[in-house]
Design a protein around this nucleic acid. Structure first.
Length: 931
RNA sequence: CCGGAUGUGGUGGAAUUGGUAGACACGUCAGACUUAGGAUCUGAUGCCGUAAGGUGUGGGGGUUCGAGUCCCUCCAUCCGGACCA
């Protein structure tokens, strides 16, 4: 009987669906395992062969765990709110809900085609009101919570109110600052609006004015991780800074816990590095520099400012030890004090400079890399030496980090050094020989010189010494800064979760939780509303109800979706605590690196909040994270001669003036173009002419990212149609380690295809039909099986799927050579193969006379004892080749035995008297014994 | 510029973690069966050499009886962050 893969696959996919084979229950005894894929955004383009890589890996792992007796949660869903559907709606007028629905249907059919073991009864869609009801609910939890700095955790805001009512908010030491501190009596006397404003400053989800990344082309704000080099991640549109009222998540409050949590999870080093860089914690000190009153006309500012106030400029440094190396102070151009302190004769020039900086986008600024800056005419007094220090303004100091002002130490900092050289500012050397005048040396190991009371001290030790001294003397304080800012949480868009918030007299009110979900209303136009507001501002009733017109960003739903899978139909809670306790953390999370700083950080933060509020029992969502590599497309080029409909073969292209043009990789066999297919591809190709070499047209090739525009995408449906889902699954794994990027090459799939056909022939003979026998296997046949079990088990456990596939091939080849068609060998092999190629396994399982599905039961094959017990019976070849040194010391104990029938344990016992230290195997052959 | 990863045949990639480098597969070549094959099977295939033999894991150096694997250094590619004080 022939291996009719398509019939088999369709049959079993229908069976699985009908019988609900992959439905999981929330209360089975025994160990659980939660295997999760990053759910996709259902784009209109559908899946290409790169997408399922991670899904296949996770599917193999979950099926494997299931066969081993775990209760496995392996769900799938869709991140269905988001910009592209809305952009599409703007262009075509189609409702995003409709296009999304259509796209999801395509995705699901493509996924089902590959034979995944998802429990679709648990599917979630972030744009489904039953789902976003709980996104809104969790948002309200965040809105109603604050971060307690003493307990370092989120607490209900009602506790804060109680505290304010009884104790107020007074500083532990020092004078209370008006506007910041207040007594209980004062609090109780505040108006509702005043109270609300104060509370807003503490809420985990809060509304405030701030500089945001505004993208004019998209008509919305973007989070920092959605902006790359001053351009939007989606669409590459320019992004500018703009002050707007926005919702934020107070993720900075969790900065330390997000960092600490990294140590408890199994992420790759690269991933941890990326996250901690993004958080960007640095410890240092803020130091006050008094302005020299002689040189500048200072107006005392009435409002205290963290950047400095009155006659003081506050700088941030990580190196307080270099205090005596300060040669100048630099303010960011946007710094509030810049214009206040500059002397009249410099004012015009400074204003002009600030204008110049503002006029350029961040992008232009970074591209230029010119040193710019201007002197303000004002001076500071060095807190210890009393020296006058000039104050400059320069764009290399960023307003958004630290205090927006720095103390420049040219001998120790590269940028300060370049600046000093450029403007001929004299440089003080405080590190002796470590600085030669050529370039700055950021060492911490130098012995300080020219540094008054610090002379002779090693810099590393001086850092803390100075910081402490400054704190005592009130000159500065130790301070920790983060690069990470609070996350902008509102978008001026339609296709997102509406905020469950109404505005009254300028204060935000949570809507009653009983009214959730607050449904996304119908709109007539997807165009932005007035004043940079979203489309919701165009709806009369919405505005009259004083509802928030922003919607939540794409990452809202994805921040907690993994919890909903545990209890997807619950209408009373986002997830029953009983079930989140049952399943616990995600044991394995598979997805791309692109979410390193966005989704992963946000969902980690939400998890921590929910944990703090006692709603779930763990504070890190993902125990282990695997980042699958990208499958790259292999693009093909044809070379068109200038101005003609004439194409020249790649080898001859240099003889003509020809441009490379992407052509569809699917009509190219290797590099040979299918000329007929090419002519039919597009109308203007119909009468194309070709210059061939050796009678063939050869294309150029290049490896690039897979994308529609490069015509190098391969649709998994086509591959499944031609080779079958099982071949496709195994080939994707066979390509290489899951974590690695690699180019797709359709040609190579033949090898895996041949393997499955060969495997089929272990059961079926072309002429004789079913050839499986009940004869007891020979030792050599057992040996093949047991090598396979051990190797494939280990490989699957450690995600080495490519070598596991190889092991299948080896075993199959060996059994073919042995002409082994014995049930006792083939049956366990089928069980092993099941996670990788479930359809063929099911079919053969049935053919062997089994009545139940192979995919659902558990088998002793995977138990340690199974292999060990039987392994004892088999021969281990020993080929003790001696080596130079060992030869000398071990001569007496070296046994040169070839093909000796002994189990490993027996060998060990046999050598016991000689106390073997190490037995060296090479590919399961013992080659040497170290005694 | 900083940080992370990677570097092995014509190609994708193995190598028990310091122990016969190149498993498995693609491709290529030769052969068998075929009217025919892009089906199937067999054999060969790192490089140089007719062979004996030599050589070989990005380059150079080191540790070791022994290095693809560990250390130093340089080079290349990919990814991420980039004026973060």
């Amino acid at each position: 009987m022939e291996y009719k893969f398509r019939d088999i696959e369709k049959k079993w996919q229908a069976y699985w669906r009908k019988e609900g084979v992959y439905k999981v229950s929330n209360d089975l005894p025994g160990p659980t395992c939660y295997v999760l894929d990053m759910f996709p955004y259902p784009s209109g383009a559908g899946l290409h062969v790169g997408h399922p890589l991670g899904y296949i890996a996770s599917d193999i792992y979950s099926r494997y765990k299931r066969l081993k007796g775990f209760n496995v949660l392996h769900p799938m869903g869709f991140d269905s709110f988001g910009l592209p559907a809305e952009q599409y709606a703007l262009e075509t007028g189609q409702h995003p809900a409709e296009t999304t629905k259509k796209n999801i249907a395509t995705f699901k059919s493509q996924l089902d085609n590959i034979g995944f073991s998802y429990d679709w009864s648990r599917e979630v869609q972030t744009s489904d009101p039953h789902f976003y009801k709980w996104t809104q609910w969790i948002f309200l939890q965040l809105f109603d919570s604050y971060f307690c700095n003493t307990e370092k955790k989120a607490l209900p805001i009602s506790l804060l109110i109680k505290k304010y009512e009884t104790k107020g908010a007074m500083p532990k030491t020092g004078e209370p600052i008006p506007g910041k501190h207040f007594t209980a009596t004062q609090w109780n006397a505040f108006s509702e609006k005043e109270k609300a404003d104060i509370l807003m400053r503490r809420r985990l989800a809060y509304c405030g004015y701030g500089e945001v990344n505004w993208c004019e082309a998209l008509g919305t704000v973007l989070a920092n991780d959605e902006v790359i080099n001053g351009l939007s991640e989606r669409g590459n549109h320019p992004v500018v800074k703009k002050t707007l009222r926005q919702w934020y998540l107070r993720i900075t409050a969790y900065a330390d816990r997000l960092l600490e949590g990294l140590e408890t999870v199994d992420f790759s080093e690269a991933m941890k590095e990326m996250q901690s860089n993004w958080i960007g914690k640095s410890t240092g000190a803020e130091i006050n520099f008094n302005l020299s009153t002689g040189t500048s006309p200072i107006r005392l500012t009435p409002n205290p400012s963290p950047r400095g106030e009155g006659g003081v400029i506050r700088v941030y440094t990580t190196r307080p030890d270099t205090i005596f190396g300060v040669d100048f102070i630099v303010l960011a151009p946007e710094h509030e004090l810049t214009l206040q302190i500059c002397t009249p004769e410099h004012k015009a020039a400074v204003e002009e400079y600030i204008l110049h900086v503002k006029s350029r986008s961040e992008r232009e600024r970074m591209a230029e890399k010119k040193i710019t800056g201007i002197f303000t005419g004002a001076y500071c007094i060095h807190p210890y030496s009393g020296r006058e220090i000039p104050i400059w303004v320069s764009e290399y100091v960023l307003i958004g980090y630290g205090t927006g002002a720095i103390m420049a130490v040219p001998c120790g900092d590269e940028r300060d050094h370049k600046f000093a050289q450029h403007f001929h500012i004299p440089i003080t050397n405080i590190i002796g020989d470590h600085y030669q005048g050529g370039e700055a040396n950021p060492t911490k190991d130098a012995v300080l010189a020219n540094s008054s009371f610090l002379d002779g001290m090693v810099m590393r030790d001086a850092i803390d010494f100075v910081a402490e001294k400054m704190e005592k003397e009130g000159i500065g304080i130790r301070k920790i800064h983060y690069k990470m800012h609070d996350a902008a949480f509102s978008r001026q868009r339609y296709w997102g979760e509406p905020f469950p918030i109404t505005w009254n007299e300028g204060t935000a009110h949570a809507i009653d939780k009983k009214e959730l979900p607050l449904l996304l209303p119908h709109v007539d136009t997807y165009h932005p509303g007035p004043n940079g507001e979203g489309p919701l501002a165009n709806i009369k009733e919405w505005v009259e109800a004083k509802r928030e017109t922003n919607t939540m960003p794409g990452y809202a739903g994805s921040s907690w979706y993994f919890l909903r899978y545990m209890d997807p139909e619950n209408e009373k809670e986002f997830c029953d605590r009983k079930f989140s306790d049952y399943w616990g953390q995600v044991d394995l999370y598979i997805g791309g690196t692109e979410h390193a700083v966005g989704h992963l950080l946000y969902s980690r933060m939400w998890t921590k909040c929910l944990y703090d509020l006692g709603l779930i029992g763990f504070d890190e969502p993902y125990k282990k994270l695997v980042n699958q590599g990208m499958i790259l497309g292999s693009s093909r080029f044809v070379y068109r001669v200038h101005g003609k409909n004439l194409y020249v073969s790649a080898g001859l292209k240099d003889q003509y003036a020809a441009d490379p043009i992407h052509t569809d990789v699917n009509i190219v066999d290797g590099v040979e173009l299918d000329i007929e297919a090419f002519k039919n591809l597009r109308e203007d190709h119909a009468d194309a002419e070709f210059i061939l070499e050796d009678g063939k047209y050869l294309c150029g090739a290049e490896v690039e990212k897979m994308s529609k525009s490069k015509f190098n995408t391969v649709n998994p449906d086509d591959i499944v149609e031609k080779y079958g889902a099982d071949t496709f699954r195994m080939y994707e794994m066979f390509l290489g380690p899951v974590e690695m990027s690699k180019p797709w090459d359709t040609k190579g799939i033949e090898g895996v295809f041949r393997f499955l056909k060969k495997f089929w022939r272990l059961f079926f003979d072309e002429t004789r039909g079913l050839v499986v026998t009940d004869e007891p296997p020979l030792p050599s046949e057992w040996k093949v099986l047991h090598h396979a079990i051990r190797k494939i088990g280990q490989d699957t456990e450690k995600f080495s799927f490519n070598t596991a596939v190889s092991a299948f091939m080896i075993a199959t080849n060996e059994l073919t050579d042995l002409k082994c068609h014995k049930r006792q060998v083939l049956e366990p092999l089928l069980i092993l193969l099941c996670p990788y190629a479930p359809h063929i396994a099911e079919e053969l399982w049935q053919i062997l006379g089994k009545t139940s599905s192979i995919t659902r039961a558990t088998y002793p094959v995977f138990k340690e004892e199974y292999v060990k017990e039987t392994a004892m019976l088999y021969p281990v070849a020993i080929n003790g080749k001696t080596r130079t040194e060992l030869n000398l010391s071990l001569e007496a104990s070296q046994q040169q035995v070839e093909e000796m029938v002994l189990a490993n344990d027996i060998v060990k016992k046999w050598l016991e008297g000689k106390a073997p230290k190490k037995i060296i195997y090479v590919r399961n052959k013992m080659i040497n014994v170290v005694v």
